[in-house]
Simulated assay, not measured.
Amino acid sequence: MPLKFSCFENEYNKDFDVKDLADYDQIVTTYYDLRDANRRIDSFTKQITGAKLNNHETDRDELPELLHKQELCLDWK
């Protein structure tokens, strides 16, 4: 996968053209097609588009604030 799609800081980049991942998509599709277990036929771009990129808060998002309240996180915000 191109580095610009695999390294992020604090959030995923959602502003990209899925066509830029065509080469990687073919690699993932071939991998799923050729592996023995589960015989999953899928592509990388189908997995990352849609609901999976929606912004939603999870319990993990509350962790820095909780650590800060307990004075275990000194550089929060």
Rank of each mutant, 00 (worst) to 15 (best):
P2A: 01
P2M: 05
P2K: 11
F5P: 01
F5T: 07
S6L: 08
S6H: 11
C7F: 15
C7D: 11
N10W: 04
N10T: 08
N10I: 07
E11M: 07
E11C: 03
Y12V: 15
Y12M: 15
N13A: 06
N13H: 11
K14V: 08
K14E: 01
F16L: 07
V18N: 04
K19L: 15
K19F: 05
D20F: 00
L21M: 10
D23S: 05
Y24R: 08
Y24K: 01
D25S: 00
D25G: 00
D25P: 01
I27R: 06
I27T: 03
I27L: 15
V28L: 03
T29H: 03
T30F: 13
T30C: 09
T30L: 14
Y31T: 15
Y32G: 15
Y32D: 12
D33A: 10
L34T: 04
L34D: 12
L34M: 12
L34C: 10
R35C: 08
R35A: 06
N38P: 13
D42K: 04
S43E: 06
F44I: 05
K46T: 07
Q47I: 09
Q47T: 12
I48Q: 02
L53K: 05
L53P: 02
L53E: 09
N54F: 15
N55L: 15
H56F: 15
H56T: 13
E57A: 11
E57Q: 11
E57T: 09
T58Q: 12
T58N: 05
D61T: 02
L63S: 05
P64H: 01
E65T: 14
E65C: 11
L66C: 08
L67W: 04
H68F: 13
K69H: 08
Q70G: 02
E71L: 13
E71K: 14
L72Q: 11
L72K: 07
D75Y: 12
D75H: 09
D75G: 09
D75F: 13
D75I: 10
W76F: 14
W76T: 05
K77W: 02
